[in-house]
Design a protein around this nucleic acid. Structure first.
Lengths: 175, 175
DNA sequence: TATTGTTATACTCTATAACTATA
DNA sequence: TATAGTTATAGAGTATAACAATA
């Protein structure tokens, strides 16, 4: 799985069927495969967000394939880097990742020597999380690629639109 | 089982002391657990979208729990309703749902008598998808609940922001 | 008793591969 | 040979529950 970037095997021949604006009506004009009418779906933010998620995660994963880091791993590294000594519960809470899932993610990052679980000085139930020196230098390469991904994303939606989206979506940043 | 995960000991834990505040911190009244610094994460559209997805899908599922319809099922019903006679491949392509997954979804909807697979008149390999009469009346109740969900979502982000988000995110509506 | 990290299970969704029956 | 629908499997991700060590 580590190299899991399968090439999407040339999805047959795409016939004409151009994206006719946001009103893909004509069911007769194109005998090949006209786009179906999505009806009210394109007014549902949830639907649009799911489609956006597909595009973004795919581009992110492809862009960071060289360092073999996925979106979840990236978010974990970022938070640990910015908050050395954080506990697993705090990371789980900050990112909305289930603590059971986080155990698995950290197992992988620790096995790759990017992250270290240390004993907490104050609470022997919990671990203090830190980037290793290798983790810190890897993180610099990783953030460079992440920025490249973000640039490509901004290109797709338009630079001004990207700024606006980031601002509007802050509502969801926590809680 | 046997994850070689032995802890070293010691090392003083640095208390919180996160980086300089490039981001306003929500002052939660929890002295024991201040929010972690998310650093650059909140400028990544992918991260924000993931958080939005969590909120939206949870609210959607809760709102439509009474009719037992999830986001994917809702999108399938919507497209079939707007395009009676559509094939499974066309639905799969329109919504970005794998055709193998669609089989499973349709099995459920057909077992509940909401959808019917009919024989295609022109190609005996494919099925023509239709809502049943029960499906059509159920769909009216379903869309009412979906609109309620969308209203709640618009409330959360603000009505004007919601409109803008829907417009900006159209880029992802297809492809 | 409650919490942290952990293990385990189940369910959702995505990605493939292979099979069948048609075309 | 290729395509539509189907079945099967594997991998992420989410949601729970339970348990040991610790608080």
């Amino acid at each position: 799985m580590s190299n899991g970037r399968r090439e999407t095997k040339a999805v047959a021949a795409k016939k004409g069927a151009p994206r006719a604006g946001r009103r893909p009506r004509s069911a007769k004009a194109d005998p090949g495969r006209p786009d179906a009418d999505l009806d009210g779906l394109t007014d549902h933010l949830g639907y649009l967000i799911r489609r956006a998620q597909l595009w973004i995660f795919e581009d992110f994963t492809r862009t960071l394939a060289a360092v073999d880091i996925g979106p979840a791993q990236y978010s974990v590294l970022t938070v640990i880097n910015a908050n050395p000594g954080l506990t697993q519960m705090a990371v789980s809470h900050a990112l909305g990742i289930e603590r059971a899932r986080l155990v698995y993610l950290l197992d992988g990052l620790e096995a790759r020597q990017l992250v270290k679980r240390r004993a907490s000085a104050t609470d022997r139930r919990s671990h203090a999380l830190h980037l290793t020196p290798e983790g810190r230098s890897a993180f610099m390469r990783i953030t460079a690629l992440a920025r490249e991904h973000e640039r490509r994303l901004a290109e797709k939606v338009g630079l001004d639109h990207h700024k606006m989206l980031v601002r509007l979506m802050q509502v969801f940043a926590n809680g």
